[in-house]
């Protein structure tokens, strides 16, 4: 849940990158980290196995500067994608303000994408969050792989994006689509904060 401090005029929001194993969640954060200037980012923490599979989470704090008079910070997290780590994945989702679902565009991974999306919805519901309304952006990653191995963007959108949320093609390994995705989810989360219900509270 976003933390808004009217005294110090600071906003902190939590974004979680979700998706099946090896879909590119950590790669997204690594690219963001590598491209941002020092004054805009904190240290990136990666709790991973020796073969770089996320074990618990990756964490990257970002400073977005002042927006509408509020110093705005985002905390980006990834989750471990493997089904095996379901218990810890749930923990990372606590307090989430927005989700980036990183789907693996490979056709053979569609079942994993679907399973991961269902898992996301179940965990959001367990947290008392409405999966139909929480800020969500879809990223269809690995578009650089041979076309014959990929689902088309239309197939991915039709299968996964039943909410019709913003979606982006991406090749996170070289940064393609990464910042567009991040900008989109940041905008959705901040818009929600400035919505009338949020203002009243």
């Amino acid at each position: 849940m976003s933390v808004v401090n009217y005294g110090t005029r600071e906003i902190t929001c939590k974004i979680v990158y979700y998706g099946p194993g090896r879909s590119g969640k950590t790669t997204n954060l690594q690219h963001v980290y590598s491209q941002l200037p020092e004054e805009r980012k904190g240290k990136m923490v990666s709790l991973a196995t020796e073969t770089d599979r996320t074990l618990f989470f990756d964490f990257l704090p970002l400073d977005l500067g002042t927006i509408s008079g509020f110093a705005t910070r985002f905390q980006l997290y990834t989750v471990p994608g493997q089904v095996y780590y379901a218990a810890t994945r749930k923990l990372v989702l606590q307090g989430v303000d927005g989700v980036v679902f990183v789907a693996d565009s490979q056709a053979r991974q569609m079942a994993e994408n679907i399973e991961s999306l269902q898992d996301l919805h179940a965990n959001l519901a367990d947290e008392g969050l409405d999966p139909r309304t929480i800020p969500l952006v879809m990223q269809y990653n690995k578009r650089d792989l041979p076309a014959g191995e990929l689902s088309t963007l239309e197939e991915l959108d039709e299968t996964l994006n039943f909410r019709g949320v913003p979606h982006y093609a991406a090749t996170a390994v070289n940064g393609g689509g990464v910042f567009e995705t991040l900008r989109s989810i940041a905008s959705l989360v901040l818009s929600r904060l400035s919505a009338p219900a949020a203002r009243e509270s």
């Binding site: 709790l47 991973a48 196995t49 020796e50 073969t51 599979r53 074990l55 618990f56 471990p80 095996y84 780590y85 379901a86 218990a87 810890t88 923990l91």
Partner: peptide, 30 residues
Amino acid sequence: PSGRAVGQFGFSNAADVMSICALTSAINAS
């Protein structure tokens, strides 16, 4: 440390062991 179970006692449910392994490896990493 990756969470892969090597041995257990006292549990009859694979799902319980899976959760415990995931959480233990996460706690260790943290």
